[in-house]
Each structure stands twice: as structure tokens, then as C-alpha cells.
Design a binder for these strands. Structure first.
Lengths: 299, 299
DNA sequence: TACGATGAATAGGTACAGCCTATGGAACTT
DNA sequence: AAGTTCCATAGGCTGTACCTATTCATCGTA
């Protein structure tokens, strides 16, 4: 039972003749005859009565015909749907973002994406890096926006923004007038940092290690805004990425001058995953969007 | 887009692995891989994401999967239905019968057929011979019961009953005491015969021709019962086949002794037509039924 | 009745498609 | 680093769907 047999069968039913069916199907008449014979063999019954001049469906042929047509039609529909979807800008895009990026990064990207891909359904998930990577592996998110670098070559990463770090210092602090600081300048200060699990905490710790600094941590939180309001209340100092600057105006933000005191944000996908037009559109967008924004952010 | 490609595709989707799918499909893994690649090629898009270890459906694959399953399922159903129907005793049987046979022949045959093939739908059509032959050609009836012989070798005929002819004569007629008559004995009598178009009229005319008899026709009707009641009213004589004997008890029925003064009833089908079990069952039944009845009829 | 025309089945040969085994390359495990 | 476990590729083989040529049967016509 093969598809071309069904096609030939329908053609004979339509034309009432093996010869005309063969012509219509662009095969020689004996080839078509053979295939019909083969189909009848497999079913164990004649599908056509070969009367001298004409050919007519048997009762069995009459039962098969609508079903054969259905099968062929649905096959075409399936193929058509796949091909149509392939080229469409629709579909769903699920993006995962780390918490220390989400509030600053998302609004403009979401706006321009939904504007550019109105047919696509965009979902955003906020999780810490290891969860995002796991979900990339599991396929429950399509793209992750997080701090690079990451380990594991099953991922493909596209860095698009490297931002400097800033010290957040109480307005009246002795160092508050400086234009730039070294991390070691803060070695005596009490630190307010993100909770363990947030990758920016690791970024900070790594930077401190390089500066041979062992920060005295007196407070931990899950978000910058909490840290900064406590800094504003003179509880200590904090380190934040540029994105979080101006979050709280009762702090002074001073650029950290150390080498490598930066954070790099990138888009990550699972290597080998095929990406829809909407997926690729989203990736193109974040890269362009953030590149375009960099001068502003650097100002 | 071939059926085995869809089968392979579903197998991979089910097992999550090309190797296991190949094993399950009883082909080598490279063969299956090739077919999947070919399918993806034709659709112009990947259906699976080949991640290092596992294989996962893409969005496009997810849209194709249910449709592929539908196609395969419906194909199986179609095949199953045809094969089931082929062996079933159901289906419809449409039988055509000439008017001069119908009322005598049908009742017992219908009864035993519906008893033996309760699932079959039997339809009976009463028409004169040329109409029946035309309908056999057109396929609107499956079997015709009529008087043989017929012309045209596009038909296949099975005679199953040859019955003698009887003269129907008024009770008080001079010939009413005879045990047997020759047609020529009736040469002076007024004849009551069937209307033109009824094949039994032709049978009668042919018999008269052979007897060098030119009957004086004073009445024509479409059914024997009308003729016989007028014979009973002393209007003249008539010739009827054995089947119609005893239709009217106010006549005497006397066997016609002439050579070939008989009528042969047979079943006719279109040569080359495939016959279902119900069709064959009906044919077997009429032959057996009437053979079994012959002694009775001859008594 | 014989004849050519039409249409399906059969015969014989060919080419390609799908299958195989062997191998390569990548990812994961030990 | 070696061994496993995947899928993809390479190269060769076979079956089968296709072709042309022919036969067979029926039908219309000279």
C-alpha cells in the first residue's frame, strides 16, 4: 500500500480508464496497471471491474475511494502546514532572563519584538543561570539572556553587551567624591551583595579575588533595589552593574577602574537547535537593540 | 513524502532516538537517517533537533507529528475496512426480475436469502428484459432474473429452471378435458396475451411460429392474472408458463405438448464483474432453490 | 466475417531508490 | 585517554517501479 498506488487508484476512479489515468499521472499505462494490480493483490480483492470498454469501481473500490482521497488530502494539508509555518514569522518564543538583567533589559526588547513580530507569542521566564541552562537543555526555553561566560559547549552564546561595574556608596561617604575607584579602595567597607545563586554575586567575588580583596558581607538580598536603599541608609557599599545605576538616587555611583571589572551579557541557545524565524528575529533584535543602546548606557 | 518516511518519523518521535527507531522499524540506522533527512529536505526544514545525546522534535516536527499519525491511522483503517468488507457477507445486492417471473419466483428466494444473509441489503427491481440488460451494463443492478436465452456476450447466464407451457382454457371449453394439447389445437381460438415488451410474449410468438400458428389476439395485458380472469369469463384462451398455473381456478390448465414449448429462467450477470460474497450467495441460492423446487413444480 | 481501433494485461529490460555494511565524527562516560 | 553511544556519510547492492514492445480481448466498421 503505497501513496502512488492510491494516487493511481484515484486517477483511474476519476477518469474511468487506466490509459487516461496513466496519462494524467504521467506514467505509462502498463506501470499504472501493475501498481493497481499490486494494490488489489495486497487487499485481496478487485477494486475495478474491467469491462470490455470501460472500467468501473467495484463496491470495495467505492469504499476505498473516499478514504484514499482523505489520506491524500490530509497528507497534502500536513505538508502545506509545515511549509507554511516554516516561513511564517509566527510561533512561540520563550525567553529566560536572569533576575539581575530582567528589569533593565526586558522592557525595550519586548516592545520592539512584539512590534516587529506581532504574530509571535513571546513568553518570558525569570530564573537564575543554572536553572536557565537546565531549561535550555530541556527545551522549555528557547533563548536565555544571562551573564557570560558560561561553561558547557552544548551551548552557543552571543555576547552583546559588556558593561562596567559601579560602586554604590552613601552620599556622604568619604569616597563619594571620587570619579573612579579601585576595588581595593573599598577593602575596609562593609559590603551589601546579592544572595548566593545570583551570578552577579560570582562576578563580584571573582573581581574581588583578582583585587585580593575579601569583602566583609553584612547583608544579602535577591535584588539590587534592596541593596541600594540600604546603601542609601549608610549601611555600607555595594557593587552593581551599569544597568542598575540610578536605581536609587540617594547613592553615589562610582566607576570601578579595575581591569575586568565588567559584566558581559549575552544570548544563549542550545547548540544544534533549529531556530524559527521568530527565534532568529529575537536574537537579531537583542543584539542590535543593545548595541544601539550601548552609547547611551556608556554616557 | 512517502509513507515509510512518515512511519520512520513517528518512530523517531516515539523513541526519541534514531537508533531505537531503526531497530523498531526493522531497518538499519543509516537507512532511517537518510529517509528522515530526505523528508526534512523536501519540507525544507528540520523536524528533529539532533542534540548530542538525545533527539527532540522541533516545533515543525510537533506540528507534523499528529498529522502524520492521522494519515497512517486512516490508511490502516481504510485497508482494514476493505479487507473486512471483502470477507463479509454484507453489502447490497440489487436484483432485477422480469414481471412474468417476479410474483412467483421472488417470495421464497427473498425469504431464504434474507435468512441466510441477514446483513446484506437486498433490493429488487421489476423491469422488462431490455431494461434489465441495460441496467446490468450500467451497473445499477447486480443480477437479473429473466428468460433465456439472451443475446450479447457481455453477459454471463446461468439457467436454472426450464418450465413447460400450459394452455389456459375456460372450464366448459370443448378442449378442457384433454390432458395435453398441441398449439395447433388452438388455432381457431381467440388469444389473450401479454403486452408487447414482455419477453414471454416473444416466447409465445416464437412457439406459435414453430407451430405455423398465427394467433388471433383479442386482448393484451401486462400481467397473467388479468388474462386468466378473462379466460375464466370465457373470453378466449391463453398460454402461460407453469409458474402462473393455478393463478386462477376458474380455468383449466393443459400442458402444451409441442417441442420447445418451454421457457427457461436464468440468472444473468455482467461478464467480468466481480461479485461479493452476498452476490455469489444469491446466485447459489436461486440455482439451488429452484432446482430443489423443480420436482414440486413438475408434480 | 474480417478488419483495424481501442484499451488492459503481459513480457523483458533498465535505472534509480532504498537498503545494507563500514566508517567517520561528536558527545558523553569511565 | 580510551571506550561507548549516538547520528551522519560513503560506497556498493538489490529490488522495484518504470519504460517499450507485444499480446489479448473487445468493439465498431468495411
Amino acid at each position: 500500500m503505497e501513496l502512488h498506488q492510491l494516487r493511481y487508484f484515484c486517477a483511474v476512479a476519476d477518469t474511468g480508464s487506466f490509459s487516461r489515468a496513466a496519462e494524467q499521472s504521467h506514467v505509462a499505462q502498463p506501470s499504472l496497471s501493475q501498481q493497481i494490480l499490486k494494490l488489489e493483490d495486497e487487499l485481496g480483492a478487485r477494486l475495478f471491474d474491467r469491462l470490455g470498454r470501460s472500467v468501473r469501481l467495484t463496491d470495495l473500490g467505492k469504499t476505498l475511494l473516499p478514504r484514499a482521497r482523505t489520506v491524500l488530502r490530509e497528507l497534502e494539508e500536513a505538508k502545506g502546514e509545515v511549509i507554511e509555518r516554516k516561513d511564517s514569522a509566527g510561533g512561540s518564543v520563550t525567553v529566560g532572563v536572569i533576575p539581575t538583567v530582567a528589569p533593565y533589559f526586558l522592557p525595550p526588547v519586548l516592545a520592539s519584538f512584539t512590534k516587529k513580530f506581532p504574530q509571535a507569542r513571546l513568553t518570558v521566564v525569570e530564573e537564575i543561570t543554572p536553572i536557565l541552562l537546565e531549561r535550555l537543555r530541556a527545551g522549555t526555553i528557547d533563548v536565555a539572556i544571562l551573564a557570560l561566560p558560561i561553561r558547557g559547549h552544548e551551548f552557543e552564546a552571543w555576547p552583546f553587551l559588556t558593561e562596567p561595574l559601579f560602586a554604590a556608596i552613601p552620599k556622604r561617604h568619604a569616597l563619594a567624591k571620587r570619579r573612579v575607584l579601585a576595588l581595593r579602595d573599598l577593602r575596609k567597607e562593609p559590603f551589601l551583595v546579592l544572595r548566593d545563586g545570583h551570578c552577579f554575586r560570582d562576578t563580584l567575588v571573582a573581581a574581588c579575588d583578582r583585587a585580593r580583596l575579601k569583602p566583609k558581607i553584612i547583608f544579602e538580598s535577591g535584588q539590587f533595589s534592596s541593596l541600594l536603599s540600604l546603601v542609601g541608609a549608610d549601611m555600607g557599599v555595594s557593587i552593581v552593574p551599569e544597568m542598575a545605576v540610578k536605581e536609587n538616587t540617594s547613592c553615589r555611583y562610582i566607576r570601578i577602574g579595575d581591569e575586568e571589572a565588567t559584566r558581559t551579557i549575552g544570548a544563549v541557545v542550545l547548540r544544534g537547535r533549529s531556530l524559527s524565524r521568530a527565534h532568529r528575529g529575537f536574537l537579531a533584535l537583542v543584539r542590535q537593540e543593545e548595541s544601539g543602546r550601548r552609547p547611551t548606557a556608556a554616557a
